[in-house]
């Protein structure tokens, strides 16, 4: 009995793990994913930025909602004089930072990259993170979010931020002013307010063309790379800068989207829910047969071994 059972067990286990094993091979083929260049995005040119932080102020002014963005006090600031975020946070959607070392310095603006294949949307278990198929805006709905913070784990740029200090917390990230400035004026507040023209808003293809033009016209000003063009499958927020992007706090990333990779594995295992159902049915057959055998031999002192 045991031997036969073992064989059946392995058969069932084989069924179950077929999906798992199948995941090994196709992982490499996951990057076949074309960027949709008609989506909206932004181009931030660090060499044009003057560090005035008008974008930060405008963002908070436009997107302040109860329970949303708030001002952040620096440690040394006893009187609450300034809004001094040190990083993106549950209170801050966009932020200008400064990189400085012996080789040079550069401002850098942080905000959501609005990926072509966003990890946060891929992992959100309740579809609180969504990507608009037309504009490409990655938006968040607090009314659906369960606060599991999987989006934070998944995001390669560490963009979604959680309100750790609030009783009713939510995830905070840039939505290109989708419900505020973009709706009212057709342009996100930061791009609208930027006095230096460092933030351009537009279609991804136009932004890419503009970025390439700038790289061509002033090759001495820039690192010859458009950050976001290929990173993790492409992002709608693009960067130009004079210093290597890694030093500006932007992670050096491969061109494959992690979301495509993980979805492929997940879909292989659960395609049509066939594997789990097959597993269940075969296990049921085995268990029921075992049970019947057990009943057929009431209280045997020794179970006879069956040869196969």
């Amino acid at each position: 009995m045991s031997r036969q059972n073992r064989r059946e067990f392995f058969k069932a286990a084989g069924l179950a793990s077929a999906g798992l094993v199948a995941t090994v091979t196709p992982a490499a083929a996951s990057s076949a994913h074309l960027p949709d260049n008609a989506q909206s995005g932004m181009l931030y040119d660090a060499t044009k930025c003057v560090g005035c932080k008008a974008c930060m102020t405008a963002c908070k002014r436009v997107n302040a909602r109860p329970g949303g963005l708030a001002f952040e006090q620096a440690k040394f600031d006893q009187d609450g004089l300034w809004d001094a975020p040190e990083d993106l946070s549950g209170n801050t959607r966009t932020l200008i930072k400064l990189f400085k070392d012996t080789k040079g310095w550069s401002y850098v603006k942080y905000s959501c990259m609005h990926c072509q294949k966003p990890s946060c949307v891929s992992v959100c278990p309740v579809s609180a993170m969504t990507k608009d198929p037309v504009t490409g805006i990655v938006d968040y709905s607090k009314d659906v979010c369960i606060g599991c913070r999987y989006c934070q784990v998944a995001c390669p740029f560490n963009i979604p931020k959680f309100q750790w200090d609030r009783t009713l917390p939510r995830i905070v990230k840039c939505d290109l002013c989708r419900n505020t400035n973009l709706k009212d004026k057709g342009i996100p507040a930061c791009a609208e307010t930027c006095p230096a023209g460092a933030i351009l808003f537009g279609k991804r293809k136009d932004l890419l063309a503009e970025a390439r033009t700038r790289l061509r016209q002033h090759p001495e000003r820039y690192v010859p790379h458009i950050y976001g063009e290929h990173e993790i499958g492409g992002t709608n927020h693009l960067y130009l800068a004079a210093l290597p992007f890694g030093s500006l706090g932007l992670p050096v990333l491969p061109s494959d989207a992690p979301a495509a990779f993980s979805e492929q594995i997940q879909h292989t295992i659960y395609k049509g829910f066939i594997a789990p159902i097959a597993l269940y049915v075969s296990l049921c057959c085995i268990a029921v047969r075992n049970l019947k055998k057990g009943e057929a031999q009431p209280a045997p002192a020794v179970t006879p071994k069956k040869e196969v």
Binding site: E86, L95, K97
Partner: peptide, 19 residues
Amino acid sequence: EKVQIHDPTPFDSYAPANL
């Protein structure tokens, strides 16, 4: 007496890009 500032603006310094 000092007044509370209700709509603070950014401090005139920058958070370092590499905290």
